[in-house]
Design a protein around this nucleic acid. Structure first.
Lengths: 128, 128
DNA sequence: CCTACTCGTGATAACCATTCTCACTTTGGA
DNA sequence: TCCAAAGTGAGAATGGTTATCACGAGTAGG
């Protein structure tokens, strides 16, 4: 773990919402001025591989990521107004489709819940 | 609805699995030789807007689509071995998180189930 | 100190899916 | 026929992401 990688991780920690690699580059430069684009992309790939970062869709053609420090099975709540992201336990509960569905043997799943965070719901904000 | 658009729709109907725009262009050219890339992209955008096509992730940097003729709420089962896609009713059932979660007011969700289709499960195929 | 080697880095070129531009054609109405 | 609007195809442009390459830091051996 180098200084650069630590800067990227710290920058990722600073986001309370989903961020693009571009956002991350800007934030990482606050910690390590002059850090290169390629370095951030490499750090993102490493962190994604380690489960410290998770891709949650995209915005305007660029990938969106969220910081994931937990190892346990969870999903994401994304605020469609401000982009805030929260973790939430798997909503499938006992309906976990781990057996045959339509002839498929389901082994994993990906769920993203969209809505309004407490702050945005309070103001009646709407987006997209 | 022009001839070109009809060709793209027919080509999309021919896929039993998720396809990229590139796949669609190749298939559309079987119906309309010489159809341009831009035209297929335009048709895809129109069909996606009309709900006739749905984006289900991506493969190697290019978007994957599936044909969706149904209007009702449903999700997708994707075979990780062969890419086959099936529609499945919403697995959330009575657990539908339409109320507050973590302070969020959930308004919609996106679920993709991954696994092996009947054919691939039978052969013990594995991919990715 | 010197060499050899490895690895992370930064700048930039390359890549490629997607979108834009533009000239042309088609369609439909009058 | 004339006109306007929309669709089309070829290719250029765009832009996020990845590959390339040279450089410096660090390490090991001598």
């Amino acid at each position: 773990m180098t200084d650069r990688r630590r800067s990227v991780a710290a920058a990722a920690d600073g986001f309370a919402r989903a961020f693009t690699v571009d956002d991350l580059i800007a934030a990482a430069r606050a910690h390590s001025p002059g850090i290169g684009i390629a370095t951030v992309y490499r750090a993102v790939a490493a962190m994604e591989g380690a489960g410290a970062l998770e891709r949650v869709g995209s915005r305007d053609g660029s990938a969106l990521y969220v910081r994931c420090s937990e190892d346990e099975h969870h999903h994401h709540l994304v605020c469609t107004a401000c982009g805030a992201v929260a973790h939430t336990p798997c909503p499938l509960g006992t309906n976990m489709p781990d057996s045959a569905h339509e002839g498929f043997v389901v082994t994993s799943h990906q769920i993203t819940l969209y809505g309004l965070c407490a702050a945005c719901a309070g103001t009646g904000a709407v987006r997209g």
